[in-house]
Design a protein around this nucleic acid. Sequence first.
DNA 1: TATGTCCATATACTTTGTATACCCATCAGC
DNA 2: GCTGATGGGTATACAAAGTATATGGACATA
Lengths: 295, 295
Amino acid sequence: MTDEETGTLKWGVERRLEFIEFRLFWEGGVNRADIIGLFGVSVPQASKDLTLYQERAPGNAVYDKRAKRYVAGDGFAPVFLKPDPAAYLSRLRSLSEGLTEPGESWISDPPAVDIAVTPRRRVESDTLRAVLDAIRDSRSIEVHYQSMSRDRAAPTWRRMTPHALGYDGFRWHARAFCHVEGRFKDFLLPRILGERAPGDPGATGADDRQWNETFDVVIGPHPDLTISQKEVVAKDFGMRDGKAVLRVRYAMLFYVLKRLGLLEDATKLSPRSQHIVDLNRPTTLAALERADFKL
Amino acid sequence: MTDEETGTLKWGVERRLEFIEFRLFWEGGVNRADIIGLFGVSVPQASKDLTLYQERAPGNAVYDKRAKRYVAGDGFAPVFLKPDPAAYLSRLRSLSEGLTEPGESWISDPPAVDIAVTPRRRVESDTLRAVLDAIRDSRSIEVHYQSMSRDRAAPTWRRMTPHALGYDGFRWHARAFCHVEGRFKDFLLPRILGERAPGDPGATGADDRQWNETFDVVIGPHPDLTISQKEVVAKDFGMRDGKAVLRVRYAMLFYVLKRLGLLEDATKLSPRSQHIVDLNRPTTLAALERADFKL
DNA sequence: TATGTCCATATACTTTGTATACCCATCAGC
DNA sequence: GCTGATGGGTATACAAAGTATATGGACATA
């Protein structure tokens, strides 16, 4: 049986058809020139691709003679990708932050975008590789770590056994067993200044209770909002009966609360900027205590 | 001149070599089976690719007979990609959040990851498309918008002319001229429940002063930190002489301040969770006022 | 009307990739 | 120490995908 009969396409061809569909859906149209520019194929090949796309997805692409390009047809139904707004916006963010090459992202003329970024120390390639290696092989490494302890200014070498990565919304950290203190801790990747000496592990991820056990944060709309405002906030956060439950690892609890603005007593903050409150604050504070974060 | 002489590679081949390099660098090794699995090529072709990679990047790949796969050589020097830890972590995040297909991301066995996410109402495909179209074509649309005004509970149809997108760290919004109020505003994409009736624009992006003009936020370490802690924070944020300047659009000022924890008086917050303060708070408050955010 | 642009298609040719077969080295298990 | 399983390399004949080049058509603009 040939490829043509089975409908199977070569990887490269499928990527191009996917690209055509992406452009039709999100960018309002596609050109032979677009295909040529991105994939470096010849003019006739780009024509063939467009023809093939029309065979595989009838009605999706119609030629707009005025604009001299294909635009999405009325009853557009994606065949090669499941269009996900979150995925598109994620691409747009990567592109805007310079993490993706313009060609790679498939977005031709991105809209004007601004992102509330905050400048942060960067992570070194070697650091990330060393941590990933240690996690993969279940081994320990020594890291030259710049901690935030009250008086120790200079970075020190400490052995640790990482088993996971965490992201708090700003920075990445390694979740690791600290051989010096004999307990699990977070090591911020940007504060690791060097790494050396892979060795035997001190503990496994299964031993990390704070990582493996979760706590339920219960949130609700800020009490000072009007009834209609509360309804909007409830929809924003997918609340039912005025509340929503977030299941969070103890090891991530501090970060989630900080991100949600719930570390302090949110009822005392202006509802204009703080839309939600913690409906179970005493329990949460106890959980934070258990998670080793003393405020 | 042939391709072989110029060193030019077909798009598909180059992707595969890039993939080989990616795996060598970040994932500790690569296999024929990996290439076959991801790109659907035949066994001999995968062999050829590995051979070709070794020709193009001598010494980067060495065969580990024990592990039966290629691993990165000692003097590994990337040829097909510039390894960027931020890009890798961004991929990892997309993968963990389910925004990327496992195959597409090139990360074979991702480490355990947790991300401090917060549940949010989703954006509709049609909404995003309509807004992107309007931005691209400089047109207006009517949106069925659920606003947060104090008493208006029901969503209303309002005409607006979007010219940019903004991301506050949590949600995306359209920066747009509001035809009802006759001024530029932010429309949260998840609160747009419907869209219709493209029409003439009400104003252009160039008219949006709050978007086009910027304000400098000056930050410094929290005064209650010890000297050594301040040094760490200074390095974290790239401060010089105890301060750093962030240039921010007025239209984004509120979001940036919220993200940095600087909406309230940060000196009154615990330095344990709030590491930085606004060194110019009165000016910032005036700027917020100018940005139309009345706290 | 002339010109430029963009799409489509045809032909002859090159490159890339497949299917199949066979060989080699290493390792785990008997 | 043999044996089979696994993973890599390579050769040959063939299929497919893609290129270069040329030609023609539709449409917008000057």
